[in-house]
C-alpha cells in the first residue's frame, strides 16, 4: 500500500514504511488505515524510515505511536529511523526519541 506521503514494502524479513513530506492531520488518516491493514497481518518486524519526512504534527505522532504500540503488543518489533530537523525536535519534546531509539 502506498500514497503520496508513504510507501509500504514487504520482504521476507521485514515490512518497511517510508514516510515523506508532511505527516499531519491531513495525511495521517491514510497512514492510519495502512497501519490497521498491516497490523491485521501481524508482521514480525516493521521498519519505519523517516529520512524524507519534513514535517510532523501531533496527528502524525499519534499514528506512529499507534503503530509502535500495536505491533509490539502483538509481539513484533518496530524500529523507527531517520528522523531529522522538525520531526526529530518534536520527538525529543515529547520524549519519544528515547522510546523510538532515535
Amino acid at each position: 500500500m502506498s500514497s503520496e506521503n508513504f510507501k509500504v514494502t514487504t520482504t521476507a524479513d521485514e515490512t518497511r514504511i517510508q514516510v515523506r513530506g508532511m505527516l499531519d492531520v491531513n495525511t495521517a488518516p491514510t497512514l492510519a488505515e495502512a497501519v490497521d491493514e498491516l497490523m491485521a497481518k501481524r508482521p514480525a518486524r516493521v521498519l519505519v524510515d523517516l529520512t524524507a519526512l519534513d514535517i510532523i504534527d501531533s496527528s502524525g505522532v499519534a499514528v506512529l505511536v499507534k503503530l509502535y504500540k500495536g505491533i509490539r503488543a502483538q509481539g513484533g518489533q518496530v524500529q523507527i529511523t531517520g528522523a531529522r530537523d522538525q520531526p526529530l525536535a518534536i520527538f525529543k519534546l515529547l520524549r519519544m526519541d528515547k522510546v523510538f531509539a532515535l
Binding site: D57, S58, V61, A62, V65, K66, Y68, K69, L94, M96, V99
Partner: peptide, 8 residues
C-alpha cells in the same frame, strides 16, 4: 507514557 492524542 506514549500517547495517541492530546499533545497539540
Amino acid at each position: 507514557e506514549l500517547h495517541e492524542g492530546g499533545m497539540g
